[in-house]
């Protein structure tokens, strides 16, 4: 937000500056792009865009169609874009609900719990991270306390550390969390948070980037507003909850959407720390399924469709926020 408003300010300030001394700026011509954009150009544009769009969408069309095809149809020499004998076998097999065919019993099946795990973990991370990020951001943006700048710079510096560098030590740290997973107070003896939801959720409940983003947004809240609440006797937490949070709607929404997206499709971290087949998340389940059951493509396609649906729904519901969020952050979650 800070960035966006800066840009606007600059643009508005620029023409105003030479005003008093220089010649008066020429009157703004009305936008007439539509008139100049002729029928022929329009046709050419569509001719370029339409085939590209078809190329971009074709894999999705195939994915949806194939998820309803029985195995024999997928493995035919000519691809069927419309399933000849539609079946829900793939969905049943991947979710492991209803009666499975003998082939599926033999070749392995998925588990509906993978999706439940993904939903639980992604939602928990989203709620906690949005809350804790906002709490930190508020302190950095609107509170003056000794050590603020040092701590803030430290936070910023952590944005420079890629997840891959801390991945291996974090695996070992998670393994040695005291009192969990059979560990003693020294953190040895058991497996700690490995193969548990704690290990999936805890490292994700704050993000330096999210804090930075929300802080920039909160800087634009006028201090007088907070001061007024303080004079009225509101506690600091009350001010945060009743004054700051309601004013940060768009930034909080952007933070939440990108966090959910990132947590839902997170792959590397759950891949290395989770091992029980009933505790893994959907992306890991799918990826391991490819490695282990190389031929059960019906199930894989069905699982892929289910794993994609929440993302598409979130995208369609929050489409406006998405674009706003990208403008706000300049980044994908």
């Amino acid at each position: 937000m800070g960035g966006v408003s800066d840009g606007v300010d600059l643009r508005e300030a620029a023409p105003a500056a030479p005003g008093p001394t220089g010649p008066t700026p020429p009157a703004r011509e009305p936008r007439n792009g539509k008139n100049r954009f002729g029928l022929r150009q329009k046709a050419v544009t569509y001719l370029v865009l339409a085939p590209l769009a078809i190329l971009f969408l074709a894999p999705f069309a195939w994915l949806i169609s194939a998820s309803f095809q029985p195995m024999g149809e997928i493995f035919s020499t000519t691809p069927h874009w419309v399933p000849e004998s539609p079946t829900l076998e793939g969905y049943k097999g991947f979710l492991n609900v209803g009666d499975l065919t003998n082939a599926q019993q033999a070749q392995g099946h998925g588990d509906w719990r993978w999706f439940a795990n993904s939903a639980f973990v992604a939602l928990t991370i989203t709620v906690l991270q949005t809350f804790f990020n906002a709490l930190c951001a508020y302190s950095f943006a609107k509170r003056r306390f000794p050590g603020r700048n040092v701590i803030f710079v430290l936070f910023l510096a952590t944005m420079m550390v890629p997840g891959q560098v801390t991945l291996i030590p974090n695996y070992l740290i998670i393994q040695h969390i005291p009192f969990f997973g059979g560990n003693d107070w020294m953190g040895s003896g058991g497996h700690g948070w490995l193969d548990s939801y704690w290990g999936l959720i805890m490292p994700g409940i704050v993000s330096a980037f999210g804090i930075f983003l929300l802080r920039q947004y909160m800087l634009s809240i006028p201090d007088q507003l907070l001061e007024a609440a303080r004079i009225d006797g509101a506690s600091e937490f009350r001010i945060f909850r009743s004054v700051v949070l309601p004013l940060c709607g768009p930034a909080l929404a952007a933070n939440a959407i990108f966090t959910f997206q990132g947590a839902w499709e997170d792959f590397f971290w759950p891949l290395i720390i989770m091992s029980s087949p009933d505790k893994i998340t959907a992306p890991v389940g799918l990826a391991l399924f490819v490695v282990q059951n190389r031929t059960s493509w019906t199930l894989l396609f069905a699982g892929s469709v289910i794993a994609t649906l929440p993302m598409i729904i979130v995208f369609i519901v929050f489409q406006r926020r998405f674009v706003q969020g990208i403008a706000l952050t300049g980044i994908k979650g």
Binding site: F56, L57, W264, E265, P283, T308, M311, I312
Partner: peptide
């Protein structure tokens, strides 16, 4: 759409 699709998919 491909951007919102999970990478594994």
């Amino acid at each position: 759409l491909p951007v919102v699709t999970p990478f594994v998919v």
